[in-house]
Design a protein around this nucleic acid. Structure first.
Lengths: 163, 163
DNA sequence: GCGCGGGTACTCGGATACTTCATGTCCGAGTCAAATGGG
DNA sequence: CCCATTTGACTCGGACATGAAGTATCCGAGTACCCGCGC
């Protein structure tokens, strides 16, 4: 009834957003898939989700592909997660308090039940943590981890025709 | 590959824990299911999970059932969620950075990748929020919402034989 | 009246089908770039 | 030499199979209660 696992596509989408930081020109989905050695068609699905959410924009034609629509500082991890997994919260209240022989009357159900509020609080904390991190932050961390220029190298590889 | 939805059984399990606050004697799973008007057999599955986790203990025989093993102040919402949905985090890193033509060398992968860290931070925030709320807090909120004695009424109903 | 034994009915527990959703794949519509031919 | 046209190939986009996991269910093992019997 409610979601329990997080889509694996989120990881792919985030990695793609980070590497797209290093290029301005569009990159085909197939090339991104080759870079990560993952299923091209399935990655395409995730990129389409990002496109629908307005995080990346697609250009068709011979030298088309995907590119970020905004500077990476303005794209939060939460944006990506919501785009891929959907914005609906993992926990949805079934209002079982209004069922059964001891059901609480409808007039008393003006506010969400305590359990729903607890889960909402936790979900909110998670979302806030995700919102606090931008794709630019991730890129910065990557450079910090693997040395300055690591992303530039990836970008250069992305620009070269797939051969 | 990773979890995306949260098990619906979590809501049931939490409601059961809250109502079990109002009784000391064991309550059969079937009675709890009747109270909430939910599938008895499936609820039994969730209660078994709680039992395995040590949150509730089962007593068999004619007037058996389930009861809390500790005072509700010592049972956190996180305990229940972990028991039902499993303790594994929603996001698990696939280490795709170590794959493909631009794979980062294994020696550079001493720490989790930036994306994995970001998700871990968010997951940690969520877990912390869930850990901060105890079943006793939920019970208190319920009394505050529906009036003092609401839980006592449920407890009385639970004690009466199912007829 | 008291203690004991057997029967009974109720409980949980794990093993078993079914449905939904995430995963993975495919082919068609649209578009841009380049090549080509003419002016 | 420059430009319009045609061709071509490459791109995305949504619709279609597959598999795993959550959902829901059933039947068997175990145990406490209750009744009856004997002392």
């Amino acid at each position: 009834m409610r979601r329990v696992k997080m889509s694996g596509g989120v990881e792919w989408a985030l990695h793609c957003c980070v590497v797209l930081t290093s290029v301005r020109q569009p990159v085909p989905a197939a090339r991104l898939a080759e870079l990560h050695d993952i299923s091209p068609t399935y990655l395409a699905k995730q990129l389409q989700a990002l496109s629908r959410a307005g995080l990346i924009h697609s250009v068709q034609g011979k030298s088309g592909g995907y590119a970020l629509t905004r500077p990476p500082e303005l794209i939060t991890v939460l944006d990506v997660v919501d785009a891929v997994d959907g914005p609906d919260p993992a926990f949805v209240c079934t209002e079982i308090r209004r069922r059964g022989p001891m059901a609480t009357p409808a007039e008393a159900c003006t506010t969400p039940c305590a359990i729903s509020r607890a889960m909402a609080t936790a979900e909110s904390a998670r979302r806030e943590a995700l919102r606090a991190i931008s794709v630019a932050d991730l890129a910065k961390d990557v450079e910090s981890d693997y040395g300055t220029g690591a992303l530039a190298g990836i970008g250069a590889w992305l620009r070269t025709p797939s051969g």
